[in-house]
Computed example of a mutant assay.
Amino acid sequence: MKLNSNIKIKGAHVLLIPYEKHHVPKYHQWMKSTELQELTASEPLTLEQEFDMQKSWREDEDKCTFIILHREKFEETNEEIASMIGDTNIFIADKEAERGEIEIMIAETWARGQKLGWQAVILMLMYGIQHIGLKIYEAKISLSNNISIQMFKKLGFVEISLSEVFQEVTLERHVTDEWKIWLQKQCEFKIEKYKN
Protein backbone atom coordinates (compact mmCIF):
# COMPACT_ATOMS: atom_id res chain seq x y z
CA MET A 1 0.00 0.00 0.00
CA LYS A 2 1.49 3.31 -1.05
CA LEU A 3 -0.26 5.03 1.87
CA ASN A 4 2.42 3.81 4.29
CA SER A 5 5.43 3.88 1.95
CA ASN A 6 6.97 7.06 3.40
CA ILE A 7 6.19 6.81 7.10
CA LYS A 8 7.49 5.05 10.17
CA ILE A 9 5.62 4.41 13.39
CA LYS A 10 7.49 4.73 16.67
CA GLY A 11 6.56 2.76 19.74
CA ALA A 12 8.47 2.62 23.01
CA HIS A 13 10.49 -0.48 22.00
CA VAL A 14 9.68 -1.08 18.32
CA LEU A 15 9.69 0.85 15.07
CA LEU A 16 7.42 -0.03 12.16
CA ILE A 17 8.95 0.85 8.80
CA PRO A 18 7.84 0.21 5.19
CA TYR A 19 8.83 -3.15 3.69
CA GLU A 20 11.53 -2.22 1.15
CA LYS A 21 13.55 -4.24 -1.39
CA HIS A 22 16.66 -4.24 0.81
CA HIS A 23 14.70 -6.08 3.55
CA VAL A 24 13.74 -8.99 1.27
CA PRO A 25 16.88 -11.18 1.58
CA LYS A 26 16.63 -11.29 5.39
CA TYR A 27 12.87 -11.84 5.23
CA HIS A 28 13.45 -14.67 2.76
CA GLN A 29 15.94 -16.29 5.19
CA TRP A 30 13.34 -16.10 7.96
CA MET A 31 10.71 -17.79 5.82
CA LYS A 32 12.93 -20.81 5.16
CA SER A 33 12.18 -21.79 8.77
CA THR A 34 9.65 -24.64 8.91
CA GLU A 35 8.57 -23.36 12.35
CA LEU A 36 7.69 -19.91 10.93
CA GLN A 37 6.00 -21.48 7.90
CA GLU A 38 3.80 -23.51 10.23
CA LEU A 39 3.05 -20.63 12.62
CA THR A 40 2.18 -18.24 9.77
CA ALA A 41 0.51 -20.84 7.49
CA SER A 42 2.96 -19.83 4.75
CA GLU A 43 4.47 -21.71 1.84
CA PRO A 44 8.19 -21.34 1.07
CA LEU A 45 8.91 -18.94 -1.79
CA THR A 46 11.95 -18.50 -4.01
CA LEU A 47 13.91 -15.28 -3.54
CA GLU A 48 12.46 -14.00 -6.83
CA GLN A 49 8.93 -14.75 -5.61
CA GLU A 50 9.71 -12.96 -2.34
CA PHE A 51 10.77 -9.83 -4.27
CA ASP A 52 7.48 -10.04 -6.22
CA MET A 53 5.58 -10.37 -2.94
CA GLN A 54 7.33 -7.30 -1.51
CA LYS A 55 6.37 -5.32 -4.61
CA SER A 56 2.76 -6.50 -4.27
CA TRP A 57 2.59 -5.47 -0.58
CA ARG A 58 4.04 -2.08 -1.54
CA GLU A 59 1.76 -1.31 -4.48
CA ASP A 60 -1.57 -3.12 -3.94
CA GLU A 61 -4.23 -0.95 -2.31
CA ASP A 62 -5.64 -3.84 -0.28
CA LYS A 63 -2.36 -4.65 1.51
CA CYS A 64 -0.41 -2.76 4.16
CA THR A 65 2.79 -4.11 5.68
CA PHE A 66 5.52 -2.88 7.98
CA ILE A 67 8.82 -4.44 9.00
CA ILE A 68 9.29 -4.43 12.78
CA LEU A 69 12.60 -3.11 14.06
CA HIS A 70 13.94 -3.46 17.59
CA ARG A 71 14.05 0.25 18.43
CA GLU A 72 16.93 0.22 20.93
CA LYS A 73 19.09 -1.89 18.61
CA PHE A 74 18.34 0.38 15.65
CA GLU A 75 19.08 3.54 17.65
CA GLU A 76 22.43 2.05 18.72
CA THR A 77 23.50 0.78 15.28
CA ASN A 78 21.39 2.71 12.72
CA GLU A 79 21.24 -0.59 10.78
CA GLU A 80 17.79 -1.68 9.67
CA ILE A 81 18.71 -5.20 8.59
CA ALA A 82 20.45 -6.03 11.88
CA SER A 83 17.49 -4.57 13.80
CA MET A 84 14.74 -6.45 11.93
CA ILE A 85 12.74 -8.76 14.20
CA GLY A 86 9.54 -9.44 12.25
CA ASP A 87 6.64 -7.94 10.34
CA THR A 88 3.01 -6.97 10.72
CA ASN A 89 0.40 -6.77 7.97
CA ILE A 90 -3.15 -5.76 7.27
CA PHE A 91 -5.01 -7.22 4.32
CA ILE A 92 -8.19 -5.32 3.44
CA ALA A 93 -10.58 -8.27 3.38
CA ASP A 94 -13.71 -6.19 2.64
CA LYS A 95 -13.36 -2.51 1.77
CA GLU A 96 -17.14 -1.85 1.90
CA ALA A 97 -17.41 -3.35 5.38
CA GLU A 98 -14.14 -1.67 6.44
CA ARG A 99 -12.84 -5.09 7.49
CA GLY A 100 -9.14 -5.92 7.68
CA GLU A 101 -7.23 -9.10 8.46
CA ILE A 102 -4.24 -8.45 10.74
CA GLU A 103 -1.09 -10.57 11.06
CA ILE A 104 1.99 -10.37 13.24
CA MET A 105 5.24 -12.34 13.18
CA ILE A 106 8.22 -12.05 15.48
CA ALA A 107 10.77 -14.06 13.49
CA GLU A 108 13.87 -13.53 15.62
CA THR A 109 13.77 -15.95 18.55
CA TRP A 110 15.90 -13.60 20.71
CA ALA A 111 13.17 -10.93 20.38
CA ARG A 112 10.32 -13.15 21.58
CA GLY A 113 8.85 -13.02 25.08
CA GLN A 114 9.55 -9.28 25.47
CA LYS A 115 6.06 -7.98 24.53
CA LEU A 116 7.48 -6.59 21.28
CA GLY A 117 4.82 -8.40 19.23
CA TRP A 118 2.15 -7.00 21.57
CA GLN A 119 3.41 -3.48 21.02
CA ALA A 120 3.83 -3.88 17.25
CA VAL A 121 0.32 -5.27 16.78
CA ILE A 122 -1.21 -2.44 18.83
CA LEU A 123 0.62 0.12 16.68
CA MET A 124 -0.69 -1.62 13.56
CA LEU A 125 -4.25 -1.79 14.91
CA MET A 126 -4.14 1.93 15.69
CA TYR A 127 -2.72 2.73 12.25
CA GLY A 128 -5.47 0.72 10.58
CA ILE A 129 -8.16 2.53 12.56
CA GLN A 130 -6.76 6.06 12.15
CA HIS A 131 -5.36 5.95 8.61
CA ILE A 132 -7.13 3.14 6.73
CA GLY A 133 -10.52 3.61 8.41
CA LEU A 134 -11.02 0.01 9.54
CA LYS A 135 -14.05 -0.82 11.70
CA ILE A 136 -13.64 -4.59 12.03
CA TYR A 137 -10.50 -6.69 12.45
CA GLU A 138 -10.03 -10.39 12.03
CA ALA A 139 -7.03 -12.57 12.77
CA LYS A 140 -6.59 -16.06 11.30
CA ILE A 141 -4.14 -17.98 13.46
CA SER A 142 -2.70 -21.50 13.27
CA LEU A 143 -4.09 -23.70 16.05
CA SER A 144 -0.49 -24.53 17.00
CA ASN A 145 0.26 -20.83 17.65
CA ASN A 146 -1.18 -20.60 21.15
CA ILE A 147 0.89 -17.50 22.05
CA SER A 148 -0.71 -15.48 19.22
CA ILE A 149 -4.18 -16.79 20.00
CA GLN A 150 -3.83 -15.72 23.65
CA MET A 151 -2.38 -12.32 22.66
CA PHE A 152 -5.31 -11.52 20.37
CA LYS A 153 -7.79 -12.66 23.03
CA LYS A 154 -6.10 -10.24 25.49
CA LEU A 155 -6.67 -7.56 22.85
CA GLY A 156 -10.40 -8.31 23.03
CA PHE A 157 -10.72 -10.48 19.92
CA VAL A 158 -13.28 -13.29 20.10
CA GLU A 159 -13.37 -16.60 18.26
CA ILE A 160 -15.85 -16.65 15.38
CA SER A 161 -14.82 -19.86 13.60
CA LEU A 162 -12.53 -22.86 13.79
CA SER A 163 -11.29 -24.78 10.75
CA GLU A 164 -10.10 -28.33 11.37
CA VAL A 165 -9.20 -28.60 7.66
CA PHE A 166 -6.89 -25.57 7.69
CA GLN A 167 -5.98 -26.05 11.36
CA GLU A 168 -6.69 -22.39 12.13
CA VAL A 169 -8.94 -20.26 14.26
CA THR A 170 -10.49 -16.97 13.15
CA LEU A 171 -10.83 -14.26 15.79
CA GLU A 172 -12.66 -10.96 15.35
CA ARG A 173 -12.81 -7.54 16.99
CA HIS A 174 -15.16 -4.66 16.23
CA VAL A 175 -13.65 -1.21 16.72
CA THR A 176 -15.36 0.84 19.42
CA ASP A 177 -14.54 4.24 20.94
CA GLU A 178 -13.74 2.55 24.27
CA TRP A 179 -11.33 0.12 22.59
CA LYS A 180 -9.58 2.95 20.72
CA ILE A 181 -9.01 4.76 24.02
CA TRP A 182 -7.75 1.53 25.62
CA LEU A 183 -5.32 0.90 22.71
CA GLN A 184 -3.93 4.43 22.98
CA LYS A 185 -3.16 3.84 26.66
CA GLN A 186 -1.16 0.68 25.91
CA CYS A 187 1.87 2.23 24.22
CA GLU A 188 3.50 5.25 22.63
CA PHE A 189 2.30 5.86 19.04
CA LYS A 190 4.05 8.45 16.90
CA ILE A 191 4.14 8.73 13.11
CA GLU A 192 7.18 10.30 11.45
CA LYS A 193 8.54 10.56 7.94
CA TYR A 194 10.53 7.49 6.88
CA LYS A 195 13.86 8.09 5.18
CA ASN A 196 16.18 5.46 3.75
Rank of each mutant, 00 (worst) to 15 (best):
V121R: 08
I67T: 04
R99C: 05
N6H: 14
Y27L: 05
V24C: 10
F157I: 10
E96Y: 03
D94H: 12
E50A: 15
F74Y: 13
E59Q: 15
V14T: 14
G128I: 03
E35A: 11
M124F: 13
Q184D: 14
F74T: 06
E101K: 06
A120V: 00
L116E: 05
A82I: 00
Y194M: 03
A82L: 08
V169D: 01
A12R: 12
E98V: 00
K8H: 08
D177N: 01
H131K: 00
I191G: 02
W182D: 15
D52W: 05
H174Y: 09
W57M: 13
F74G: 05
H28L: 11
L36Q: 04
F152T: 06
I181Y: 07
I129V: 04
A97K: 07
I132W: 07
K135G: 02
W30K: 08
A93H: 11
I90C: 01
T77C: 05
E101A: 08
Q119K: 08
L69F: 07
D87L: 14
E103T: 06
I9M: 04
G133Q: 00
I191F: 04
I92H: 06
S56W: 09
K135H: 04
L143H: 06
V175A: 02
Q49T: 13
S142Q: 07
S56G: 11
M31T: 10
Q150G: 08
E159N: 08
N78R: 15
I122S: 02
Q37D: 08
E98G: 04
A41T: 10
E96P: 05
E80S: 03
D94E: 10
E80R: 10
K10H: 13
T65C: 12
I132D: 00
L123K: 03
E101W: 03
M1K: 07
V158M: 09
Y137I: 04
D94T: 07
A139Y: 01
S56D: 12
K185T: 15
I106N: 03
G117R: 04
K195H: 11
A97L: 13
S144N: 15
R99M: 05
T109G: 12
E72W: 15
P18E: 00
E38F: 09
I191Q: 01
K26C: 02
K95G: 02
K8L: 14
T109C: 11
R58M: 10
T40R: 01
